[in-house]
Design a binder for these strands. Sequence first.
DNA 1: CTGAAAGCGCTTACAG
DNA 2: CTGAAAGCGCTTACAG
Lengths: 358, 358
Amino acid sequence: MAKQVSYTIKDVARLAGVSQATVSHVVNQTRFVSEETRHRVQAAVVELQYQPSAIARGLKTKSTGTIAITVPNITNLFINAAVRCIEEIANTHGFNVIICNTDDVLAKEEHYLEVLIAKRIDGLLIAPIGKTSPAFEAMRAMGIPIVFFDRYIEGSDLPIVEVDNAGGVYQAICHLIQDGHRRIGFLSGPLIVSTSNQRTAGYLRALHEHGIPVDPLLIKRVASTSDAGCRATAELLAMPDPPTAIFAGNNLFTVGALLAIKDAGLVCPDQIGVFGFDDHEWAQAYVPPLSVVRQPVYELATAAAELLISLIRGTENSNVHRILPAEVVIRGSCAPHHDVLPPLPRTIGERETIAARR
Amino acid sequence: MAKQVSYTIKDVARLAGVSQATVSHVVNQTRFVSEETRHRVQAAVVELQYQPSAIARGLKTKSTGTIAITVPNITNLFINAAVRCIEEIANTHGFNVIICNTDDVLAKEEHYLEVLIAKRIDGLLIAPIGKTSPAFEAMRAMGIPIVFFDRYIEGSDLPIVEVDNAGGVYQAICHLIQDGHRRIGFLSGPLIVSTSNQRTAGYLRALHEHGIPVDPLLIKRVASTSDAGCRATAELLAMPDPPTAIFAGNNLFTVGALLAIKDAGLVCPDQIGVFGFDDHEWAQAYVPPLSVVRQPVYELATAAAELLISLIRGTENSNVHRILPAEVVIRGSCAPHHDVLPPLPRTIGERETIAARR
DNA sequence: CTGAAAGCGCTTACAG
DNA sequence: CTGAAAGCGCTTACAG
C-alpha cells in the first residue's frame, strides 16, 4: 500500500482554473469570491477530496492550534477528570491537546518540553514537578504562553491556577482531632511538588494549633503512586504505636491505604480512620463512604484552560494567581476514635480561622 | 510581552559562517562534518538558543512525529490505563500523542478525524463508536495507518486489537448461574459499539445454554456513564421482581451500580450480587472486593501501539486481528444467592466450551 | 473581483 | 568535506 498523498492547493487551483490565492480564500472564507468561481473551487475541492494541510498553514501563520498539558499521571482520578475538562474546553476553541505524563520525573518533563518547543505548540498547561530546567526557560524565552496548573515552580513569575491545599488539609486534620484522634498518619508526595508541600503545611499547622506534638515517623513522604501509598500505610500500621487515623494526600494514596488496611485485616472506620484527598465516585460508593477533601476539579481545569487560551489570543495579561478553595466532605470513613478522648474545646483563634475560610 | 520568535537555521548558518545544509546536518547528525565546522555550528546553536522547528521539518519530510488516539472518555479507568500505556510506548519511539474524547458521539468523532487529517498525524489508534464516516474514509484513502483499539467498525478491513468480550462475560454469567442466580440484571452500552454487542452476546449465550429464559426488562442499554449506570440499576432494583445479581458492563457502570445499591439501602453481596467488567485497584479495595472480568489492559495497549508504530514504519503489513483473552476474577461481591437454587449440573456442551476457551 | 509572487523554516538531491 | 538551490503546501500583502 503506497503512501498515497493527498492533493494540494495547487491541484485544486489548476482544476478550478483559478489562482491558489482564490482557493485559499474560498476554503478559509477570508475574502469575497464571486459565486461562480466559488462554486467552481468548491467542486474542485470535493472532486479531489482536497485536505488542506494544517502543517503548511502553520508554518506560514505561526500557530499550530495545539496546546499541551504535562501532568504527573493520567491514571490519577483528579488528573484525568481535569484533563478531560481541559480537552473539552480546548476543543471548543479549536485547539487539540497533547498529553504528557511526566511521572514526576524531571528528565521526562524536560524531554517533553523540548519536544513541545520543537512542535511549536501554541501554549502550555503545566503541572510541574517543581524545578525549572533549560527547556522550561527556553519555552518562556520564546514567549510561548504558559500557565501553571494545580502546581507551580517556585520563583517563576507565571500565571497560576491552584487550590488552597493547606487550608483543605488543615480543616480535615482539625476534624480528625476533634474526633479524638491524636496520632494521625500522613501520606505525602515529594516536597519538591508544591501541592505536597502545601498539604504537609496544613497538617503541621493543625497539629501545632492543637498543641499536638508531631511525630516524624507518622509522616510518610513517598512517590505519588498507589503502591507507594500501600507500602507506607502498611509501615504505619506495623508501628508499635500505630496511628488511629490516616490522611491520604491524594486519591492514589487513598486506594493504596485502603488496600493496606484490608491486607492488615483491619476495618475502617472501626479500627482505623481514613481521610482522603480528592473526591470522586469511588470514594462516594465505598463502604464506608470516604471522608475527603474535595478539590473543585472542573472550576480549576476550566479556569486554567480559559486563561491559557486568552493568553494565546492576547486577550489577557499574565498576572493571574487564582487560588480556589478546597472543601471538606465528611462521610463515614473517619468516625470518632474508639478510646475517645474528650473533644477538645475549640480555641477562639481556631474558630476565627475556620470562619475566615468560608 | 511581544511574541518573540526564535532564530532560524539561516541565522545559525550566518553566525557560523556555513551553509544551511551544514547546520541541518550537524543538528541532525545526518552526514559527516569536520570537527572544526561542527564546533563552530554547535557554538552558534547555543549562542542563539536555536530551536529547530519540527513543523517546518514536517512540511518537508511529511511526518509529524505525532499519533492520535480517539477514545470514548479518558475518565474511564480502563481507558486511562490504556492511554497511559500507549503514551509511554509512543514516547519511547519518538511520538507524541494527541488525545481525543469522543463521548461516543459520532459528530465529535468525525470532527476530530477531520482535524487530525489536517494536522497530518502519522497514525491513528481508534476506539471507534462503530460507524464509518466521510472523514474516516478520507483518512483511509490518504493511507494514514489506522488500528482499531478495543473496538472496531464492522466491515472495515483494518487491523484490530481487541479482547474476547463475549467469552469473558459468558464465564462471568455462568459463574453467577452456578451460584444460584436466575434473574441477572445486565448493564450494557449502546449496541452500535462492538464491545457492547459482544458482551451482550456473552450474556445471552450463558442464559441460553442454561435454559434460562431472558427477560428483556433485565437488560439495560444506556450510555456508558456512571450516571446512566446508576439510574439503570435503580430501575432494576425497583422492579416488582428485581434481579438478585447485576452484571455491570464496564467500570463506569460498576460504580454507578454500587451507588444505586447504596442509595437503595441494600448491601452487597448479602442482598444483591455485583459482577463488574474491568479490574482496577478500587475494585480490589472495595468492601467487599469486587468480582470482575479483567481485561489485559497493558497487553492490549502495548499490542495496539506497537502495531501502529510498525505500520507507520512500514515494518509490518496490516492483516492483523488480535483477540486477547479476558479473565474472570472471583472475589467477594457475588456470593451465592440467599434462596439458593441447587447448583445446575454442568452440561457436557458447556464443559467443552469452557475447556476450549482455555 | 482576482492573481502573481514572496516567504514561512526546514531537508535533500545534486554538484564539485 | 561542503554549498547553492529547489521545494514541501500553504497565506498574504501588493497590485490592478
